[in-house]
């Protein structure tokens, strides 16, 4: 089973491993992957069926954690009362989150670098062939010469709430279709570079093409990044990535020293 797990993790295909860690059959395993029959057993077909269902759910959410089951997959507190309980650890390996960066500018290489450190699969896209080259962005997983429209049309559906779109072009010709494309996806973070003035102008241009809905526009993080006083491309990359983390965790990003409560909350 380890070989199968190994192969799926290496090839970045989604997979979850359920392991009995307490109760009957410690160490028993069930390997679960979308669209394939589970491998192994936790001890009973019913338990396997319920655990596989839960594992697919955890995989969908990119989470790992503990579940308690009865010997035949019982899960409700009433059903578990008085039965021997099996504690299972569901570990899920989801493909890495994506970051799409539009604009092959000075800030792009720094952002791509920091995004790689955080585990993103990074796509860099620019319509200008001389800028969007592998040589300038060796750290990116993919460098694409294209306008934003076709990229979103072709694979916008692969963006999900844990993915980020960063639009760094400053050029309305490119920004507007990129923002339009990003807003049509469920990407969890959409950041757009530029001053407050640039953003105001951009909002006008977006209105001209019919993007006026306040709920939609509220998704745009622009000017992009946390207020760290970042100046260099590297510092700006940190401020953008820090903002992505803070938006995901819902934190108001004070310094840890000035906040209260557990630091790993």
């Amino acid at each position: 089973m380890y070989e199968q797990l190994n192969e799926r993790i290496r090839s970045e295909q989604p997979v979850a491993l359920v392991t009995v860690i307490e109760g009957a059959g410690i160490g028993s395993k069930l390997l679960v992957a979308p669209g394939a029959a589970p491998l192994g057993t936790l001890g009973s077909p019913e338990l396997d069926r319920i655990a596989a269902r839960d594992a697919l759910g955890e995989l969908e959410a990119g989470r790992s954690g503990i579940r308690h089951y009865g010997p035949n997959g019982e899960t409700t507190p009433e059903d578990l009362a008085g039965t021997p309980v099996v504690v299972a650890f569901i570990e899920s390996w989801a493909p890495p989150p994506q970051m799409w960066i539009f604009g092959a500018v000075d800030f792009t290489a720094a952002l791509a670098k920091v995004a790689k450190v955080l585990g993103y699969r990074v796509l860099v896209c620019d319509a200008r062939e001389i800028f969007a080259t592998r040589r300038r962005f060796p750290m990116a997983d993919e460098v694409l010469v294209s306008w934003p429209g076709p990229v979103f049309a072709e694979r916008g559906h692969t963006l999900a709430p844990r993915d980020a779109v960063c639009i760094l072009t400053h050029d309305p010709k490119f920004d507007v279709p990129a923002v339009q494309g990003a807003l049509a996806t469920t990407a969890g973070y959409i950041g757009v570079m530029g001053s407050r003035t640039t953003h105001a102008t951009r909002l006008q241009r977006l209105a001209e093409v019919g993007v006026t809905h306040a709920d939609q526009l509220a998704r745009l993080m622009s000017p992009i990044g946390l207020d760290l006083g970042a100046r260099t491309p590297e510092e700006t990359a940190i401020s953008i990535c820090a903002e992505i983390i803070a938006r995901r965790t819902g934190r108001a990003t004070p310094s840890l020293r000035d906040a209260v409560g557990p630091i790993h909350g």
Binding site: S64, G65, I66, F89, E91, S92, P262, I263, H264
Partner: peptide, 15 residues
């Protein structure tokens, strides 16, 4: 050895 659960402040997540 895999982290399966944390309580309170823990440096690494399950997995």
């Amino acid at each position: 050895a895999r982290v399966v659960d944390i309580e309170g402040s823990g440096p690494r997540l399950p997995g």
